[in-house]
Design a protein around this nucleic acid. Structure first.
Length: 259
DNA sequence: ATGTCGTTGCTCCAACGA
């Protein structure tokens, strides 16, 4: 079974590439983020024609997550229990579902904007709510994983130049501690292999020729419990999908499971 | 040189988020 996570940065803008990629990659289950579309505008029909069912949690311009599956979708739960919300509103950033033998979450962790910003506080609170919500399944015997855009680079090796991130979000001890807490809850970082260069970056800013210069970050992560991690046969970043016109600023992370 | 992209709205450019 092939499972993947991809921040598509607008499913409307990405639809042609998304459909082509689903077919060419043979992905069975895709956790996607930043749908940036209202739920009733989600392109269910062209996905169905490719054989995928979709579970969607989205409200419009910002955020929005989904799980696409051609191996079934059951027990869909929209939202994160205990989600702190931001500025008085809970945002669509999490969805969980069971697809065949695996239970997954598709998550879009708040960016944080700047260290100390209210959005950064929100980010840390959101992480704690996520940890509490997944702790049970993390200890379970069913393969389980939280896939998505974590907006945190786990180590200094997960950014192109640690010195370029001094004082920035995505690399602070508090953000990394949130990842540590998830691992201590029973989830392991399934690190993909890069198809080129040494570091498996998953995101390159659109600006300043970041992709051609490979100034990237690994912030799209797959955190799986022990049964999930033991079933992993291969994992890689499909950086080809970051190339060319009409690309998302994130590349898909693909995991092959023997389940 | 913020070498970009995508969205929305009192649109055809500006503001915002990433």
């Amino acid at each position: 079974m092939r499972i993947a996570t991809w921040n598509v940065n607008s499913i409307t803008a990405r639809l042609p590439r998304l459909l082509a990629w689903l077919e060419s990659s043979g992905t069975d289950v895709l956790c996607l983020q930043e749908a940036k579309v209202a739920e009733d505008q989600f392109p269910i029909e062209p996905l169905r024609e490719l054989g995928y069912e979709a579970a969607v949690h989205a409200t419009g311009r910002w955020n929005g997550v989904a799980v696409l599956s051609r191996v079934g979708i059951e027990d869909v739960v929209k939202g994160l229990p205990g989600d702190p919300g931001y500025d008085g509103a809970v945002e669509p950033r999490a969805l969980s579902a069971t697809c065949g033998p695996v239970r997954v979450w598709s998550v879009y962790v708040p960016n944080g904007r700047e260290v100390g910003h209210p959005h950064y506080v929100y980010k840390l609170e959101w992480f704690e709510a996520l940890r509490a919500a997944v702790a049970g399944d993390a200890q379970g015997s069913r393969p389980f994983a939280v896939l998505g855009d974590y907006n945190v680079a786990p180590t200094d090796d997960d950014v192109f130049d640690a010195s370029a991130f001094e004082g920035s979000t995505h690399v602070t001890p508090a953000e990394r501690a949130a990842l540590t807490a998830l691992r201590e809850a029973g989830l392991a970082d399934v690190v993909p292999r890069p198809l080129k260069y040494d570091q498996p970056f998953t995101y390159w800013d659109y600006r300043q020729l970041a992709f051609p210069k490979n100034r990237g970050m690994r912030i799209d992560l797959v955190y799986g419990n022990a049964p999930f991690a033991q079933a992993v046969k291969d994992a890689y970043v499909d950086r080809e999908e970051r190339k060319g016109k009409g690309a998302s600023d994130h590349a898909p992370v693909v995991v092959d499971l023997d389940v």
